[in-house]
């Protein structure tokens, strides 16, 4: 089990980084709450309008959160030489990358799942299909962060990569976004939930190899 310890330690380190960097859960919670609070100001306070576009705004906030938090996810490892050590130790860089990405999702993406009931209330959405909504935000966010991780790994050696990551990752976010929104509309019985799960699984299958290859090349 020599390979599991660097993965675990990378996961823990990324957790603490994401945690401390954002002053704990305050930052993601504040980010989502703030974005949501801006919606009535930007489009007016008609209840019908709010309930229609509210969920869409949250999906955008989720995508934004992933861009912001993933900007430096791999850069520190490149700078302090941790990446070189993993390459030398022949650790599974793919798994380490996934672990780090998941840690960031846990801190910055998962809170939206927990907050979904609150937002559903604020934005006048229906309180009925909470489970569906939470599942959709969870799976969709996971997919976002995995593809965002690929973009971050590809641009690991770029100094200010925030906008670049957003541009690269944008097309990859489209399926999860569409399926996620559809799932919220159609419920768990609809085909869209299957598609959402499939796209999350696909991301889980493809992104580790891509992140691994990208990080390996950033190291040499």
């Amino acid at each position: 089990m020599t390979s599991s310890s660097p993965i675990l330690s990378a996961f823990k380190q990324a957790l603490s980084e994401a945690w401390a960097g954002g002053a704990g859960l305050m930052l993601p919670l504040g980010f989502f709450a703030g974005t949501t609070a801006l919606v009535p100001f930007s489009v007016g306070s008609e209840a019908e309008l709010l309930s229609r576009i509210g969920p869409g705004v949250l999906w955008l906030a989720l995508a934004l959160a992933s861009f912001v938090t993933l900007e430096r996810v791999f850069q520190a490892d490149l700078e302090d030489g941790a990446l070189d050590i993993w390459v030398q130790e022949d650790a599974s860089i793919s798994m380490i990358a996934v672990a780090k990405t998941l840690a960031h999702w846990l801190i910055s993406g998962f809170p939206l799942v927990l907050l979904a009931p609150v937002f559903a209330f604020i934005l006048q959405g229906s309180m009925q299909d909470l489970l569906t909504t939470m599942l959709a935000y969870g799976l969709g966010g996971l997919t976002f962060f995995l593809w965002g991780g690929v973009a971050a790994a590809l641009s690991a050696s770029v100094a200010r990569a925030g906008l670049l990551i957003a541009l690269i990752a944008l097309p990859f976010y489209v399926p999860a976004l569409i399926f996620g929104v559809q799932t919220v509309n159609d419920g768990l019985e609809g085909a869209s939930f299957l598609f959402l799960s499939a796209s999350a699984l696909f991301a889980l299958g493809v992104t580790p190899a891509a992140m691994g290859a990208a990080l390996r090349l950033a190291a040499d």
Partner: peptide, 14 residues
């Protein structure tokens, strides 16, 4: 490239 079919399906569905 491998994502194009999925994007296509999702956009059609949307």
């Amino acid at each position: 490239f491998i994502n194009i079919p999925i994007i296509k399906v999702s956009v059609d569905m949307w």
